[in-house]
Structure formats: structure tokens, C-alpha cells
Design a protein around this nucleic acid. Structure first.
Lengths: 230, 230
DNA sequence: ATTTCACCAATACACTGTATCGCAACACTA
DNA sequence: TAGTGTTGCGATACAGTGTATTGGTGAAAT
């Protein structure tokens, strides 16, 4: 029996690990949003059957948790930040950048406690940058308050961004209330303050808006760090 | 042909409207979370076929939008608030209360632009309370910043609450890092600042935490309202 | 009385997350 | 080397999802 007669040995199943699974899931989410992530499609990308994944994760939610933690690797600062304010600001901006690269992150942000190694590391460096500047409770509240702010701000920004893209309207037109519905509502006169804000307000770009609000919150933190708690 | 021979006229289909549909959906969500809301189940509650709903909504997401706006009716202040700070604080706390009554709200908060009549009305009264205290852009930023804060804070609070309930642990135990995983991670020594925060930190209840962070942000707003923008 | 029309229910489809089960390839024992 | 566990993978299966399509049945209009 020559080589030609013998069939090749059956290809062993491609080796799998969480890293590759998560990478595939992230790729899918980057392309088509969170809803494009199905266990079947993730598995297909790895030439595996859907059930194979259940050796590595026990539920789809866990896969999402892994994805979020993976992105937190991008959020980790390159070098240990020096000043506390820069540490908090950097944390916020890097999270925002990550969400712009991976818009599905906005859907997950704050949705579940983040206990993955990367997320913990991010929190650690941020806390460390504030260590000693106030009692531990104040420091913790500072980090949480800033975190709450940028979580909310990022979610809204991404939500608006999607709405714009969905209608195909330019950002200017959208913000200026040309969502026909919003225009109609404002023109009823029932929302004068809102109408004024929309029509008379200056148009500011998203990043500046984010940064300014962040600065406000950071100012508040600065005030609390300055003098010890009552 | 007597009455007895004639069959009763077929029961006309129960009348439907958005209000009833949304109420049914909210009831389902209150009982079993967002994932318990399926068009089939909503329709079943109204003795209707699933397809019937598509006369009133064209997509499931729209149903969610209606649900969110309906809850905003609970968030509307009873009486027109006087002082700006009280207006913002009230908005935040009422939103939080609504999320505690309807935990699924946390999953939707900030996820899509809120353009429903009730949501607009809420924004209107909040903006109105700040009207004239600064230029319109500052006012808008104030409302958005506070909104970003409490959106993020509420989401995290609800997320933690769910995690606690899922493990069945008491809040104290959970916060003290007995999530076995978190404890293990902290004990590695790789997260000293985080460990200190968790172990040495005072345990504060969620509402106080929310209120304190909110006060910080309100202080920041106060500072910006006080002096006109640069 | 007959036609039109609107609307509702049923059916259907493609797809989802996950439980179960049987097989096939490896590691180990005799 | 032959046999035997054991592990882990694939296929199959199930209940359920959102939504497109279709066909019939009532009320309204002629």
C-alpha cells in the first residue's frame, strides 16, 4: 500500500483556548455589533462546533465578560501615571477610545461587575495614583464617581452616534433637531427650555463635551481631596 | 331558529393600544427581567397573536423605547421644582428610585437616545430649573454631566445588586470581598491599593454612596454656574 | 346584496442558547 | 501488544426567539 493509497490522518481538531475564542468574538462584535455575536458564529470562525465552546465558558454572558476584560487590556496605561488627576483623566479617555474602537463595549459598560484581571489592574493603577491623598473612603468615592460619569457619558455618546448613523443624517443636522420627530415636538412649544437649548446652543464636538464634563467632575474631586472629610 | 340554536357572535378581538401593550411588557419585565419580555408573551397577556403587535410597533426595540418613556412618567416631578440644585438632585433620585422599582431600566438607561414625550418633559423641567443661571451651553453641560453621572451610578448599583442576589451572599460579605474569586485575586498581592480599599474601606449603603457622589457633581456644577464661563 | 378593504391569525423561516448522548481517539494497565 | 477506561468532541435535539408572508373573515361601502 503506497502513500497514495493511504488517506491522510484525520485532521485533529484545531486547538482552542479562551484567548482565541474571545478574539473571534471580539472580531465579530467589531464587525457587526454585539448582536452579531452568536456562539455558532464564534465557533464557526474557529472551525469548531458550537458545543465545543462550553468547555471554556459555561454561558454566553461569560463570554461577554471575557470580552470586556480583554478590552480592558487596551485601557491599562502604558506607564504608571504620576499625577492623580492625569491618572483619572487618562482612565476616562482611554475607556472612551476603547469604546470608539469597539462600540459594543458601550452596551456592556457598567452592566455587570468587572472582576477580570485586566479590569482589576486598571482599577488598581487608578487607585494607586490616588493613594495617600485622602482617606481610603474618599479615594474610593473619587474613583467611583469619575467612573460613573464616564460610563454614562460614553454610553450616551455611542447611543447618539448610532442614532445619527442610522438616519444617515449629518451630525450637525441631527444635533440641530432635524430628527423630524424632535423638531415636531419642540415646535409644539411645550418644551421651551429644551427648544432653546437645542436651537440656541452651540454645537460642540463629542470629545470636547466629554472632556469638559470630565474636568468638572475632576474639579469636584480636587475639592474633596484638598480638605480632609468632615 | 330560536336563540338557543344560534351561536353567540364570535368574540371580537380584545381592543389593543400602545398603552396596554407597554403595560403588559412592563409587567413582564418587572417579574422576570428584560429577557422575559418576548413579543409572544406580551401578546399572550393581551389574548392576541404575536403579529398583532406589529400594528403598534414595528420592532422590539421600539417596544423597549416605549417602556423607557413610560417609566419616565414616574420620574417627572410632581410639582415644578424651585431651586436648581433640588431639581437636579430630584431628577437623579427619582431616576434611581424608578430603576429600583424596575431593575430592567438599568439595562436600557443611556442605551438609546430618549425622545419620548415623557423623557422630553423630564429634561424640560430640569433645564427650566436652570434657565437663566448661566449661558445656555453651560446649563446644558450641567444637565448632561449630572445625567451621565447618575446613569452610570445607577447601572453599577443595579449590576452589583444582581450579582449579590445571584450568589445569595449578604451584602456585607459580598462587599468584603468574599466573592471567592475577588478574594483570591486580592490575596495575590498584585492589587495592593485595591485590597486596601476593599478591606480597610468603610461599608456604606448604596443610597448614601449615590447621594454623596451626586453632591460632589452638584458642587462642581455650582462652581461653574457661579462664575460665567471663561 | 355584493364588492371592497382592512385587519387579524396562522403558518413559516431562519436562527438563537444550551442539554443530552453516543462515538472515537487517546492514555494507561495487564 | 491487547484490552480497557476516560475524556472530550460532534451531532442531534429542543424550546424558544423576532419577524415576513399569506390567506381568510369580518365590517364597511357601493
Amino acid at each position: 500500500m503506497t502513500v497514495w493509497d493511504r488517506p491522510e490522518p484525520p485532521t485533529r481538531p484545531a486547538p482552542l483556548d479562551r484567548e482565541r475564542i474571545v478574539a473571534a468574538a471580539i472580531a465579530l462584535a467589531d464587525e457587526g455589533g454585539l448582536e452579531a455575536v452568536s456562539l455558532r458564529k464564534v465557533a464557526a470562525r474557529l472551525d469548531a462546533g458550537p458545543m465545543r465552546l462550553y468547555g471554556y465558558i459555561s454561558t454566553k454572558e461569560e463570554l461577554f465578560d471575557l470580552m470586556v476584560d480583554e478590552v480592558h487590556a487596551e485601557i491599562l496605561p502604558q506607564e504608571r501615571p504620576g499625577e492623580w488627576r492625569e491618572a483619572l483623566r487618562g482612565h476616562a479617555h482611554r475607556t472612551r477610545q476603547a469604546a470608539l474602537r469597539h462600540p459594543w463595549l458601550a452596551d456592556l459598560l457598567g452592566g455587570r461587575p468587572t472582576l477580570g484581571p485586566n479590569a482589576l489592574a486598571v482599577t488598581e493603577t487608578t487607585l494607586a495614583a490616588l493613594d495617600g491623598l485622602a482617606d481610603i473612603d474618599t479615594v474610593r468615592r473619587a474613583v467611583e464617581t469619575v467612573g460613573a460619569y464616564f460610563t454614562g457619558a460614553i454610553r450616551r455618546e455611542i447611543a447618539n452616534l448610532r442614532a445619527e448613523r442610522a438616519t444617515g443624517l449629518s451630525k450637525r443636522d441631527w444635533q440641530r433637531a432635524s430628527g423630524p420627530h424632535l423638531k415636531k415636538m419642540l415646535d409644539t412649544g411645550r418644551f421651551p427650555a429644551l427648544a432653546k437649548a437645542v436651537y440656541d446652543g452651540t454645537e460642540v464636538d463629542a470629545e470636547e463635551s466629554f472632556a469638559t464634563g470630565l474636568d468638572w467632575v475632576l474639579d469636584a474631586v480636587a475639592a474633596k481631596l484638598a480638605r480632609p472629610p468632615a
